[in-house]
Amino acid sequence: MADAHAHLSAAVNTVLGTVPADSLGVVAIHEALLSVLPGAQYAYDITLDQAKIFDTLASKLRAFKAAGGGTVVDNTGMFHGRDLPLLESLARATGVNIIASTGMGPEENLGGYFLTPQTNPPTPWPADKFADLLAQEITDGMVIPRLERRAPAGLVITEADAHGITPTEVSLFQGSARAALRTGVALSVRWGTDAHAELAHVLGEGLESNRVIVANLDRADAVAEGVPATVAAKGAYVALDHVGQNDGSYIDDAARVTLVTELIAAGHADRILLSSNAIGVAAGLTPVTLPYEFVLTEFVPALRAAGVSDADVQQILVDNPRDVLTVRGGKA
């Protein structure tokens, strides 16, 4: 990039505090470290063995680092098992940058506090309340519930219902966009049934498209309709984030390689993100046991074999995540 000076001052929020954007290295942008389905922490048949969880995640992060990885972004948001002392300790112990996210979704994973508050009638939260809650996770730090705040979140995440975005999720998307706009942190949205319409909810808040990642765009139905290219053309980042998962509702890796080469050929190399949505430790849901380095060790060789240049690989694995994760001047 030409603007070297801007890079020197550019910064990213990690769980250990702000780091220069150029220090992230290869980024696994859509992954989960500890992922706990809301409520599973209270389940009689689930034990969260802290020591074991640490060992499992540390060895996975070390393997990622050994394969050339620099940064893992934990996409679980603020209410899906995020354990900040764990993430901080892992970052210190392994030397991998860990970026934690704020945000929630879909609606079915929200607590009743947001859906049926103790008011009459029990009206779900409006966008501005979500915006305040999420922005505070960046301006004042992420919460350890009922205890304290830690480092600022590095990404806002949200998700629409797989059967179609609900009215409360529209508020949540709008509030997430406002929090991103206010704080300069990027927003990642997992789409439900209509990626463009759902993207429009966040762009409608004035958030620039280059501050938005549309996740799950390697879903077979999105690819069939050419959505990755049209989202990229709009200027948003296209996350093909199920690399290594070949289970039917998503395209397989061979088709992913083709999709990447097509997007590059169409001039969208600067909008592609690759990740695996691996889950290091899962509670209350099925783990996705892919290694965090799967993109590096398995998928990149396939890209190269398909003629993708080193410069494009560097762009996709290092530059694009760096650019989107860099905190921009917020509009506070």
């Binding site: 809301p38 409520g39 603020m78 209410f79 929200l110 607590g111 009743g112 506090y113 947001f114 049926t116 508050p117 103790q118 809650l133 505070q136 004042d140 919460v143 519930p145 009922r146 705040r149």
Partner: peptide, 9 residues
């Protein structure tokens, strides 16, 4: 407290 209220400082 309603579930989720623990997130609101």
């Amino acid at each position: 407290g309603m579930p989720g209220s623990e997130l609101d400082s």
